[in-house]
């Protein structure tokens, strides 16, 4: 059962009147519910752009080729207005970024609560949920610390708790282990794998790290704005 169904995704960035970059040149792919998928490829291959479109942060270009299609959990989303797109992001998706992207003046607990509040969860329940989510990532004791008071690994775990607190169907990672050493990287990967297996949450990650790719069910290789090939790992490496 596909969670994401995409076809003909194109994106061109116009940097100036004469300079434009074709980041995506007609990408089509499906991601099944419960899959853990890595998107790999050299820099400039369009993998981050693809993730931004799949994560509803950007819309694909509508002109210059066959009409783009994108369905999330069966719902067509290409022409969705900003408000319902934002609502889908808040309730059905979680984001983990390379540089953690926590709000600096908020504590770990408040950062996680923010995702709940944006999803429309009442404040008191958002707090309870956030405490629970910090427990999942082993940071219950650090809930009142601010990002500057935490290590990179801890910050990324807070970011994972924030991404998971609303129990989204899709977890999107943009180089989630990119800033971590190998030990912390393995920890984070293990954590994502655990949530994927135990809760059936779909995980889609952009990565340069072959170890991350090896731990996923499938790796989509991109080059020059196109999906070059999709390789299924028959026996994903245990994270």
């Amino acid at each position: 059962m596909p969670l994401l169904e995409a076809s003909n995704l194109r994106k061109t960035y116009r940097l100036s009147r004469k300079n434009q970059v074709e980041a995506l040149r007609g990408v089509s792919l499906n991601v099944d519910a419960g899959e853990m998928v890595a998107i790999m490829g050299p820099s400039g291959s369009g993998k981050s752009t693809l993730m931004h479109i799949l994560g509803l942060l950007h819309a694909p270009d509508a002109n210059g080729g066959p009409p783009p299609e994108l369905a999330f959990d069966g719902q067509k989303v290409v022409k969705l207005a900003d408000r319902p797109r934002t609502r889908l992001r808040a309730t059905q998706m979680g984001f983990v970024f390379q540089s953690y992207n926590l709000v600096p003046n908020l504590t770990a607990l408040e950062n996680v609560m923010l995702a709940g509040e944006y999803a429309g969860v009442p404040r008191s329940r958002a707090r309870t949920d956030a405490v629970e989510a910090l427990g999942w990532v082993g940071l219950a004791e650090r809930s009142n610390h601010r990002p500057v008071e935490m290590s990179g690994g801890e910050q990324q775990r807070v970011a994972i708790a924030r991404a998971l607190v609303n129990r989204p169907k899709l977890l999107l990672g943009d180089e989630p282990t990119g800033n971590l050493d190998s030990t912390r990287s393995a920890e984070v990967l293990q954590m994502l794998r655990r949530f994927n297996r135990e809760r059936g949450q779909t995980v889609l990650m952009v990565t340069h790290d072959p170890e991350v790719g090896a731990a996923c069910d499938r790796v989509i290789h991109m080059r020059d704005g196109r999906c070059e090939r999709s390789v299924v790992n028959q026996a994903p490496a245990s994270a």
Binding site: G55, L57, D82, R83, T86, R87, R89, A90, T91, M93, G94, F95, N101, L102, V103, P104, L114, A115, Y118, A119, R162, A163
Partner: peptide, 16 residues
């Protein structure tokens, strides 16, 4: 700006 981007990415609406 970055903080606002984070908030928008994780589901903060324009109104919010």
């Amino acid at each position: 700006t970055r903080e606002i981007g984070i908030k928008r990415a994780i589901g903060g609406s324009r109104g919010r």
